[in-house]
């Protein structure tokens, strides 16, 4: 079974709010080697004009991947996760994420295309705050290898 193209155009209901915790930002900063004190120190963040510690530039992936799982983990979508590699990722920040944010995500299935034997599955997450104001747009493409393929490039 391959990737079902009929999911293209689908929009999922808004996720429950993801509450951004200082500890979550600190753990992500530590894991990625984010060195700026505004990611971990409230005073340093406030000195830059932020209300609380600010997220490293790729932290929104935590929120986005949780939302994407609604689609990619749905057996009906036909995405065999053991054959998935991550093809590309893009973050567009409408404003920085900071601790205390309550983020709600709407997932869109943008496209399913075939290229060089791979199924390329593109999604877009629109992340907004509790007031509904846009915070970030996260675009992601997964490449799904067919069965019995060797080692294609790409990092899972």
């Amino acid at each position: 079974m391959g990737v079902d193209p009929s999911f293209v155009g689908r929009t999922y209901p808004p996720t429950p709010p993801y509450e951004v915790a200082r500890t979550a930002l600190a753990a992500f900063a530590e894991a990625t080697g984010a060195t700026h004190p505004a990611c971990t120190d409230v005073d340093a963040a406030r000195a830059l004009g932020y209300p609380d510690v600010v997220a490293p530039p790729t932290f929104a992936v935590v929120v986005a991947q949780a939302a994407e799982s609604q689609y990619v983990a749905d057996p009906a979508a036909g995405i065999d996760f053991s054959r998935v590699v991550h093809a590309d990722e893009r973050f567009t920040h409408h404003r920085p994420i900071h601790a205390g944010d309550r983020l709600v995500t709407v997932l869109h299935v943008e496209s399913v295309t075939e290229r060089a034997g791979l199924s390329l599955v593109a999604t877009r997450c629109e992340i907004a705050d509790a007031a509904g104001a846009p915070v970030a747009t996260v675009r992601s493409t997964l490449a799904v290898r067919p069965q019995d393929d060797g080692t294609q490039g790409g990092t899972p």
């Binding site: 992500f28 894991a31 990625t32 080697g33 984010a34 060195t35 700026h36 505004a38 990611c39 830059l48 932020y50 600010v54 997220a55 490293p56 530039p57 790729t58 992936v61 590699v85 991550h86 093809a87 590309d88 990722e89 893009r90 973050f91 567009t92 920040h93 404003r95 920085p96 675009r139 490039g153 790409g154 990092t155």
Partner: peptide
């Protein structure tokens, strides 16, 4: 996530990254 820190350091502000994209080639 790890490699963009050099840009954050040069800017002095993690919130100054407006858009960031990559392809995972290898």
């Amino acid at each position: 996530g790890a490699v963009v820190d050099v840009v954050v350091e040069a800017l002095g502000d993690p919130g100054a990254v407006l858009d960031y994209q990559v392809r995972f080639s290898r």
